[in-house]
Nucleic acid binder design. Structure first.
Lengths: 109, 109
DNA sequence: TGACAGTATGTCAGATATGACATATTATTT
DNA sequence: AAATAATATGTCATATCTGACATACTGTCA
């Protein structure tokens, strides 16, 4: 991971282990974070497909506009549970969720 | 969902919506819970493949034996985040995680 | 330009998840 | 059977996540 990417993530509140940590650990951290980012992107995509504003969608899941914004932005304060529940609420299937989780539809941070 | 299954889940601490709720909602609840159960089963499988006791694995992820037991048992107090981080720690790939998330390797509760 | 809808970002009190511990239950080994 | 290892279950103080709110920013339309 380059300096710029790391900066970007740290801005979102992610506390990453020291660069001296051995690589495997960092890889696991990254895999986890990338999954959340992927789910956030998907959330945005599906919400927009349904022509819902963040506020409208927030109402639907008993949350708030700001939290929806954070979900889509990959904020570190957002749990996997919330992301997945939200996607299900949008009618996304387990199969589609699986595609987001999977490495294959990757995109660099 | 039948009465026995519901009882089983409620024993694990899951608070399910009233049966009068319309079906779609219940389906989403169930999809979410089934995902967690699937991840828990996978965790157990991979831990055993590596011949680790719950206590030994717990040490590796800075957790405790009791929490690992809860993860594997599908306890409601366990987050998706913890399940997924734990699976990654066991060396499970995103692709394999995706398979658990996916409906296809389903098993009734 | 200003008004307005949508989104982003920061903060916080309350809600939920966490590791740790105690203790019970269930294999496994001798 | 008794000792030992592994797993299950309950509780709790603390850590982390949450919705809500305030407020800032970004478009877009008149």
């Amino acid at each position: 991971m380059n300096r710029a990417s790391r900066k970007k993530l740290e801005a979102k509140g992610w506390r990453l282990g020291d660069a001296q940590d051995f690589l495997e650990l960092t890889d696991k951290e990254m895999a986890f974070i990338e999954m959340k980012l992927a789910l956030g992107r998907d959330l945005k995509k599906h919400r927009q497909l349904k022509r819902l504003s963040q506020a409208a969608f927030a109402r639907r899941i008993n949350s708030s506009q700001s939290r929806v914004a954070k979900m889509e932005a990959g904020d570190a304060s957002v749990s996997m549970d919330l992301l997945i529940k939200s996607l299900l609420e949008l009618g996304v299937s387990r199969k589609e969720l699986a595609r987001s989780i999977d490495q294959s539809n990757r995109r660099t941070v």
